[in-house]
Design a protein around this nucleic acid. Structure first.
Lengths: 244, 244
DNA sequence: AGCTGGGTTATAGCATACAGTCGCCGAGAT
DNA sequence: ATCTCGGCGACTGTATGCTATAACCCAGCT
């Protein structure tokens, strides 16, 4: 008897099996979620460019679903600042401004600093051990010169720190801000690499000591440097563009 | 000639004029917005109680619209933490926990403090004048013993401060956190009144002076006191409940 | 009497259908 | 030649219909 609870019915393929250009999103869970993930990813890697008009029909066809889940995903993307929703005109990929990027970076510094303080205050030995693991992973990525792994390790480390803070509200806000920072940053980014990981190491040490004040300071400096590096690279990129 | 741009067609009443218990949302603009506003309000004044199951059909009938705009509004309410969306089960008004309330208040302190600092840094004379106006409005509400006006004045003052910070990202985050704080707070709240407005006065003075550091300090203390008062009243409320 | 299984009903999720609006383009007038 | 008006196409916003799922309840078994 195929019961009506456990086995998430296997024969679930309402997706126009045919020419769905992307993989057909065959998850058993809410479609809107899958669509959201897909669109967010496309936006992040510039597959959908800032300012681009997102036509519901096209996206729906492209992903092999109806307009409904697409709309819902767009709404969510809107609340999180990825797309602008002009009434009766539709959804457009948000166009980041210089000012906004700076404000995001500033806000991120504020939030992450507090997060580091709280982490230092509440850290358990297991959590610290986990931190060191993640840090080693970063070092490894660094020595292998793997950009992708490095970015990933970086994200994981920050995510864990945030979780350690124990403040879920803070965590949620940081999550939102962080993803957008990474988006803005990505076209010009090249992680600061070695430098950043040395700072991480120092930060972890003071967290292990439970030195609240110092943890805050170090995190502040860390994110401030990232911010500077952002402006730096942004300037370089602009000059680059001016030449072409 | 009734052109095709300006005159937003007057004959727009797709709302089942009949037994819509609430006013029928007759705005000419996006329905989902109106629905969102209506639901948010109902949640805030406890017309919809925490934990309550929000059935799309009922809400739609109640508001005189179809399920579609209701769904979209619910999605948005979900993103902002007002309702939980359990897949395949639907929307439930979020049940605030003690822990969450405290984390919200803590986060609010962090954000508002920074906001005050920035406001002190960037304030223009007009903005300061506006601040004083709002403060006078508060004093007036106080002397008239009007609870509603007081809450409103308080919200307006904080909102203006946030705007003065010039950081739109920060402003957005504060907006989200603040509304939820007010929700959690509301069942037991009674604004601190006199006390709070004295603190406001002092804060405005240092902002006018452009004293960044001091502005931050005062705002921190101000919100910390609110936080204490929250816990205080919460405790009283709990004891009250224990008796009954 | 308690527990297990099947059927029923209510409800969310998704798809489709319909209508109003916006922007564009061409034709005609000035 | 430019400006204006009218029509056309496209797309959003809204409504409705369909399907699958999850909880609930009762019957039958242990």
């Amino acid at each position: 008897m195929t019961d009506r609870r456990g086995t998430t019915s296997p024969g679930r393929r309402p997706l126009g099996g045919a020419r769905a250009a992307r993989q057909p999103l065959e998850r058993p869970a809410p479609l809107r979620q899958a669509v959201y993930d897909a669109l967010a990813e496309m936006i992040i890697n510039r597959e959908l460019q800032p300012g681009e008009h997102l036509v519901e029909n096209e996206l729906a066809a492209h992903l092999g679903v109806s307009r409904q889940p697409v709309r819902e995903a767009l709404q969510r993307l809107h609340n999180e600042g990825w797309v602008d929703l002009r009434p009766a005109l539709g959804a457009f990929v948000h166009v980041p401004t210089e000012e906004e990027a700076d404000q995001l970076l500033a806000t991120r510094t504020l939030l992450e600093t507090e997060s580091a303080r709280l982490a230092a205050k509440n850290a358990t030995p297991e959590q610290i051990e986990r931190l060191r693991e993640l840090q080693r992973a970063g070092e490894e990525a660094l020595s292998e010169d793997s950009q992708v792994a490095l970015v990933e390790a970086n994200a994981a480390l920050h995510a864990h720190l945030v979780e350690m803070s124990g403040n879920k509200v803070l965590a949620q806000l940081i999550g939102m801000v962080d993803r957008r920072v990474r988006w803005y940053y990505s076209p010009i980014a090249r992680s600061r690499g070695r430098e950043a990981w040395d700072e991480h190491a120092a930060l972890i040490d003071v967290i292990a000591e439970g030195n609240t004040r110092r943890a805050g300071e170090l995190m502040r400096k860390h994110t401030e440097r990232t911010r500077e590096s952002y402006h730096q690279r942004r300037k370089e990129a602009d000059e680059q563009e001016a030449l072409s």
